[in-house]
Each structure stands twice: as C-alpha cells, then as structure tokens.
Design a protein around this nucleic acid. Structure first.
Length: 292
DNA sequence: ATGCATGAGGA
DNA sequence: CCTCATGCATG
C-alpha cells in the first residue's frame, strides 16, 4: 500500500512550537483519476462537501467584480508640486520592456513585474485549485463551463498552466478575474443544488490542424545542442538543420520559437519576495518544484 | 501535464 | 521573421 500522504509524524502532546508548515494540499484520487478528497495539513475535506466549503480566505478588499483596481506600485512621492491631473481610470499597461529588470532606487517590498503582484497571483492560483477540487471539478470541466458562459473562455490547458503558474505574469493577471468570477458563481450554484456547472454548448466544427510533429530523441539532441549555442538561428541555418534532420523547415522554425518561449513562460522560479531583513544575495537559486 | 501549432501584432 | 497568448493533441 503506497502511502500517498506526506510524513504525518506528529506525536501527540508536542509543544505548540512555531512550526512553520506551508499548507501543501494533497489530492486523494482513485483509480479513475477522479478526485476523492483534498488533504490540507491534517484535515481532509471530501468533495461531497455539499455545503460547508470551509475555505474562504477572502479578505476584505477583495473585489469580486472584474474591475481591475490596478494597484499602483508604491511610488515615491516627490516633495514637489504635483499636477492635479490624477485620474483613477484603469489605464492600460504601460509597456515596460524589461520585466525582470528592476530599476535601482526603487525598493520593491513585494515582488511584482509589469504591475502584477506575483504574490497575489500565486495565492489565488493555489486557492483556486483547492476550491475547484472542493467542487469536484476537473480542469477540463472548468474549461468547458467557461466556454459556455459569456466573457473570455479558456481551455483545460490554460487552467492547468494557471494553476501551475506556467505562464507569464501578464497572462495570469488577465485570466485571474475570469476564474475568480466564475468560481464565485459555481460555488453559488453548488450551494443551490444546481449541478449544472458543466453545461456544454455545442462546439462548432473546428478547422483541421496539422498533426503534431514528433521529434526523435536524436533529432531533439541535435536541436538542443544548436539551441544552446544559438537560440536564434538564421533562416539559412534553420534550413540546413531541417535538411540534416529531414524535417520540415517550418517545423524547425516553430520548434525554436516554442523553445524560446518555454524559457520565458513561468512565474514560478521568479524570485519570491525576500522575507525578513534582506537576504544577503541569492547568486542563483535553482528551485525545482515537485509535480503533484 | 506538456509539446507542437496557430494566428495576431510588431518591426 | 519574431514574440506572445492560447489551444489542440498527445504521452
């Protein structure tokens, strides 16, 4: 019997010390891959929890509407006369080219890039997954339900990537309100006994798409070695690579595009906010997350 | 969960 | 051609 849960070596009567243990929700699934329950710490909340959704860490100030309050980065106010032109209208994204680069002289207490609070995103992503599982819904079901409603729709892939934070901060910020809004509705309906969360509005016949190319391990090694030397091969170079490996040139080009993109997409492993009195310096922390 | 594909928008 | 945001298809 494979014990799937983590170490619960908790001898009773221990001293209530300040043991910081990040809540790591574990999922109990059956042979069909269906979620049976969610385990958080020492508590187990089964999905058949018809009413008592015991998790509502909604703190005051959390908007349920889709109005993006666009929290402004704490700007240092200059001891000067400011122009009385201050409009709180949610302006668009001020395209800052450098996402990761931080200007010197701008203290960033909470990590955020492109005006996105990664901290908040991380928090919501985790909460979302827990709430989704509490309703007994799969990523696919959420995706389908989302397509059936007004507003932006997202696929299972998108849901997955959001939960895993395998996306850019910008994307996360965009999808968050959508999921937030939908989740609120879903929970409301759930309480009403209405199980019609996975309504399926017929999908139109979609265009046929090219079959996915499957690169051989040998080809991948060649491609990767090229990529390490140069992430941006010239057209000429790509043509030669394609010839040598006997793949479509376009396929090779796309491979490089996707490869480059893969390196950028992820707000995991973006430096988490430094806690406490300024950590000396993190030269290079390679943090491999486990994959649940 | 992730790899390759598509398509819009930008130089 | 590239980057970016996303999704279909697949392991």
């Amino acid at each position: 019997m494979p014990n799937s849960v983590g170490p619960s070596s908790q001898s009773g009567g221990g001293t209530p010390s300040l043991q910081v243990q990040p809540i790591t929700p574990q999922l109990l699934t059956n042979a069909q891959g269906q979620i049976i329950a969610t385990v958080i710490g020492n508590q187990i909340l089964p999905v058949i929890n018809t009413q008592g959704i015991t998790l509502s860490p909604i703190k005051p100030g959390q908007q349920t509407s889709q109005a993006p309050p666009v929290s402004q980065p704490s700007l240092l106010r200059m001891p000067h006369s400011q122009s009385p032109l201050r409009q709180a209208s949610s302006s668009s994204t001020t395209s800052s080219s450098s996402s990761s680069a931080l200007s010197v002289g701008q203290l960033v207490s909470s990590d955020e890039v492109d005006g996105v609070n990664l901290e908040e995103i991380r928090e919501f992503a985790k909460a979302f997954k827990i709430r989704r599982l509490s309703l007994g819904l799969t990523q696919t079901q959420v995706g389908q339900a989302l397509s059936a409603t007004e507003g932006p729709a997202y696929s299972q892939s998108a849901i997955c990537r959001f939960e895993k934070l395998d996306i850019t901060p910008k994307s996360a910020q965009k999808i968050k309100p959508v999921l937030e809004r939908w989740m609120a509705e879903a929970e409301a309906r759930h309480r009403s006994g209405m199980q019609n969360l996975t309504e399926f509005i017929g999908s139109e016949p979609s265009k046929k798409r090219k079959r996915r190319t499957s690169f051989t391990p040998q080809a991948l090694e060649i491609l990767n070695s090229h990529f390490e030397k140069n992430t941006h091969p010239s057209g000429q170079e790509m043509t030669e690579i394609a010839e040598k490996l006997n793949y479509d040139r376009e396929v090779v080009r796309v491979w490089f595009c996707n490869k480059r993109q893969a390196l950028k997409n992820t707000i995991k492993r973006l430096k988490p906010p430094e806690l406490g009195p300024v950590a000396p310096m993190d030269p290079l922390v390679d943090n491999m997350e486990e994959h649940p």
